[in-house]
Design a binder for these strands. Structure first.
Lengths: 420, 420
DNA sequence: TTCTTTCATTGACAGCGGAAAATAACCCGC
DNA sequence: GCGGGTTATTTTCCGCTGTCAATGAAAGAA
């Protein structure tokens, strides 16, 4: 319905070769860099960088900052190449059970405007209508800036097929097989990317957050649920059947409380907000409305509440150790709304992680990263940015009967042979 | 010391481009294929395959089988391209705590000869001496075949840095920082690749076993210990700190038996052979020598022994479910000596996997694959083969201060934009 | 000014992989 | 036995990418 007031035409991004994309992404995530440094980090020759950068500067996606403070006072001063965030805008939308959160970001994924709209009805039509309203508001803001919005990302929890833009199954929304990308593209007039919310947030961390420069890390989100996004070999793990990173349903205690998934003692059944609130309520006999209240009680020194958080911390720490034991990531980033009460279980997380981590898996860098709730929407924007800059290189999405994977491993190395 | 009677000179493998390697590996693992099929599976044009195949045929690594039964009686008959296994031989050696197992394989990783030598002393010098003896025997066998042995692989449990050929820490052997590849290359006169045993076995499965054609799978080995090799995005997961796939130390019951790692209720503390034997021994009060005896008791209907296996099965199933929940592999392959008693816990593995798998993670194909113990040595040979055919493409092994990973994700796809 | 140092660019070039056309090999029906 | 039909493979360009080595550019230093 709504005719967008800004560009109705998808812009094309002039990075058609792997090398050019690599250079652009490196500039995007590793900040302003000299061409030489860019070459080193992207594993290319300086000449290749010069050639990759030029068309991107001409198209306005990259820019040169002439000066650099940290000049070694010798030789030609380097000029810094950086992404011009103002060149293009993106929308990111996170759909939760009861509201829709949207952000307007620039190409560097900096949030310019954030909006929330309540969601009364979870059926696709209603969500799309709300989404259209939200989009309208954000596009109006974008109009004021005079820059085109070139893509939108939508993040939804559950099983999402990003390649097809399909929400296969979302328990929260009670959706099945909803072709959300297509529908949202119709209502917003923009190219729309749909992805799982945790995966989208993981991309945001990988490019703009605490995962920059790492090829293997995990992002653990603590809040109503306990989620986990994994990056292995530099790529987000999607799972063959749409399931991956379900750290929330790793069992930490087979005798633990019943989880909504049907098992006992899942991480989420111990450390999810509902579980904590429930435990505090039962232990104190008082009515506890939400997690904030439970945390308040713990801060006031109510032992039962503190105990609930301690148990939650143990469960989370053990879940993280499981990830570390299985994948050996360089870093684990803990984030999510639940971090508001981090002081209540930080110690337990650390201790139980350290205890359950096997051998040098304990050397994994576990750190926290408090993020506003809008970060979820920003993740969706990151997803849109990813689609935008990678759009030329869509492999044979689902074509070919045997879409096999790279068969060669990393860097086989061999000690020298004999010297007769 | 020992001057190898066969080729003292490392041969070079004429596949210097990614495409050529891809073609060769596809031919290696997916059996004889027509060029057209090869092109499709490797994601290349037919012309590229022709060009890649020619030099490999000329060098004798590939061969053409003229005929094909399944001819559709229409059009030019296809000729099959296959790897000529007889072109080169490899050694694979697995070092355990009390013996050294060696195999001689061809280029297709078919075992031609297998030998065991007992190991009395675990110190590096002693192991190297045994390894030299074993190598002598196998090289003598190879001499009879008139084909050169072009590389050797050594598999060791523990933390191994394959790129450097370094055994960082092996608890079984009580080794630390042993540059095994270099030492073994000296004594054997061959290029030597050293890798972790489970990772080596995983490569063997990926190329020659139940993982062929899959980009995401897990291999779980059941035996004295419980191990796990992971392939994600088509590559074996190595772990940032040398630890990965430690499914054996995933906690399944915080109140369970004490594990040698210091925690309680690790999978290995319940399902490892020692744990099973221990449990049977304690429950029956009789002396139980080893796992075979425990299994025999269970087969005779001794309830306590059956119970021990049932518990083990539960633990393994839960461990597998954890892997499936976190990574969403297409398949999990269960293997290892422990499979000899598979009938004793198959049901429990399946049931507890199905119960603990979250959502469609349960769709993961869990299957068993009984393998002889020599398979471990064959894994080492596969590792050597991998080094041999990939030797031209060693990235900057450890050069560059910021060896960053591929920053771009798989296949971003976007639903169409507007059509005004 | 001229030299040194470092960053960036240029232009020649090799080689890879693709597209399309040509060729090869086979069966069939006549 | 000879076209015709069909499929596999090869050939022949051709564009394009990324590298190499040399050159230019922009300082500060002598």
């Amino acid at each position: 319905m709504s005719a967008p007031s800004s560009s109705p035409r998808a812009e094309s991004f002039p990075a058609h070769t792997p090398a050019a994309s690599q250079v652009f992404v490196t500039a995007l995530s590793q900040g302003p860099l000299t061409r030489l440094e860019l070459a080193r980090r992207a594993g290319l020759s300086p000449a290749a960088v010069t050639k990759a950068v030029r068309p991107l500067i001409e198209a306005g996606y990259l820019a040169e900052s002439a000066d650099d403070e940290s000049r070694p006072a010798l030789g030609r001063p380097a000029s810094l190449v950086r992404v011009d965030g103002g060149r293009a805008l993106f929308l990111g939308v996170k759909v939760t059970g009861d509201e829709v959160i949207g952000v307007l970001t620039d190409l560097c994924c900096r949030v310019l405007v954030a909006r929330h709209l309540p969601l009364a009805d979870r059926r696709p039509q209603a969500v799309l209508a709300t989404l259209a309203d939200l989009t309208q508001e954000l596009l109006a803001e974008a109009d004021g800036l005079g820059v085109h919005v070139v893509g939108a990302g939508v993040a939804v929890s559950g099983d999402v097929d990003r390649a097809r833009g399909l929400v296969r199954y979302s328990p929260f929304l009670e959706w099945r097989e909803v072709p959300l990308a297509e529908l949202a593209a119709m209502t917003t007039g923009l190219p729309v990317t749909v992805d799982n919310d945790v995966r989208a947030l993981t991309v945001a961390e990988q490019w703009f957050g605490a995962g920059v420069g790492l090829s293997d890390f995990a992002l653990v989100t603590v809040g109503a649920g306990i989620g986990c996004g994994l990056v292995v070999h530099g790529r987000v793990v999607a799972g063959a059947h749409g399931v991956a990173g379900e750290i929330g349903h790793v069992t930490v205690d087979p005798a633990g409380p019943l989880c909504h998934c049907g098992n006992r003692g899942c991480v989420e059944a111990v450390a999810g907000e509902a579980a904590i609130v429930d435990r505090v309520r039962r232990a104190t006999g008082t009515e506890v409305a939400d997690a904030a209240e439970a945390a308040a009680l713990a801060h006031q020194g109510v032992a039962a509440a503190q105990e609930a958080y301690a148990r939650a911390g143990e469960a989370i720490g053990r879940g993280i150790a499981t990830v570390a034991n299985l994948l050996g990531p360089e870093r684990v980033i803990i984030s999510g709304e639940g971090l508001a009460a981090y002081d209540l279980f930080a110690e337990q997380i650390r201790d139980s992680f350290a205890a359950a981590a096997f051998g040098s898996a304990a050397r994994c860098d576990v750190r926290t990263r408090p993020l506003p709730f809008e970060e979820w929407a920003r993740g969706a924007a990151a997803s849109a940015i990813q689609s935008f800059i990678g759009q030329s290189r869509n492999g044979p999405s689902s074509a070919g009967p045997s879409a096999t994977a790279p068969l060669l491993a990393g860097k086989p190395a061999t000690a020298g042979g004999p010297r007769p």
